[in-house]
Simulated scan of single mutants.
Amino acid sequence: MLALLLSTALFAYTPQRNLRLKAMPTASSNTAAMLIQKITDHLNSQNSEYSLSAKALEMGIDGFLKLAATGEVSADKPLTIIDFSLPSSKKRLWTIDPTSGKILHHTWVAHGRNSGGLMAEKFSNTSSSYMSSLGFYRTAETYSGKHGYSLRLDGIEKGVNDRARERAIVIHGAEYANPEFIKKYGRLGRSLGCPALPMSQYEAIIDSIKEDGCLFIYAPNTDYLQASILHNNDRTT
Score class of each variant (00 low, 15 high):
residue 70 T to M: 02
residue 118 L to C: 03
residue 206 I to Y: 04
residue 127 S to V: 09
residue 55 K to C: 15
residue 224 Y to F: 06
residue 35 L to T: 11
residue 150 S to W: 09
residue 43 L to N: 12
residue 106 H to V: 06
residue 193 G to K: 06
residue 164 A to E: 03
residue 6 L to A: 11
residue 88 S to P: 07
residue 54 A to F: 14
residue 199 M to T: 12
residue 147 H to Q: 07
residue 199 M to C: 12
residue 227 A to P: 04
residue 59 M to V: 14
residue 32 A to G: 10
residue 94 W to T: 05
residue 122 K to I: 07
residue 148 G to C: 04
residue 222 T to A: 07
residue 176 Y to I: 08
residue 110 A to S: 01
residue 76 D to M: 04
residue 7 S to E: 15
residue 164 A to M: 00
residue 220 P to Q: 11
residue 10 L to T: 15
residue 36 I to N: 07
residue 205 I to H: 05
residue 172 H to P: 01
residue 21 L to A: 14
residue 117 G to P: 06
residue 61 I to N: 04
residue 101 G to D: 09
residue 235 R to F: 10
residue 112 G to F: 07
residue 134 L to K: 00
residue 180 E to T: 05
residue 104 L to T: 00
residue 184 K to D: 15
residue 134 L to Q: 05
residue 81 I to D: 05
residue 66 K to W: 12
residue 41 D to Q: 13
residue 159 G to P: 02
residue 83 D to P: 07
residue 199 M to W: 04
residue 50 Y to T: 14
residue 148 G to N: 01
residue 53 S to L: 02
residue 65 L to I: 02
residue 18 N to Q: 15
residue 28 S to E: 13
residue 198 P to Q: 08
residue 10 L to F: 15
residue 164 A to K: 09
residue 98 P to N: 05
residue 74 S to W: 13
residue 28 S to L: 13
residue 203 E to R: 10
residue 179 P to W: 00
residue 98 P to D: 00
residue 52 L to E: 09
residue 176 Y to A: 00
residue 194 C to E: 06
residue 168 A to P: 09
residue 187 R to C: 13
residue 14 T to F: 13
residue 144 S to E: 11
residue 163 R to G: 07
residue 14 T to W: 15
residue 130 Y to E: 07
residue 84 F to N: 04
residue 92 R to N: 11
residue 186 G to Q: 02
residue 39 I to Y: 09
residue 220 P to M: 05
residue 54 A to Q: 15
residue 229 I to N: 03
residue 113 R to F: 04
residue 11 F to P: 15
residue 44 N to L: 11
residue 73 V to K: 07
residue 107 T to A: 01
residue 221 N to M: 10
residue 83 D to R: 04
residue 178 N to L: 05
residue 13 Y to C: 15
residue 112 G to Q: 01
residue 232 N to T: 02
residue 14 T to M: 14
residue 91 K to S: 08
residue 52 L to R: 06
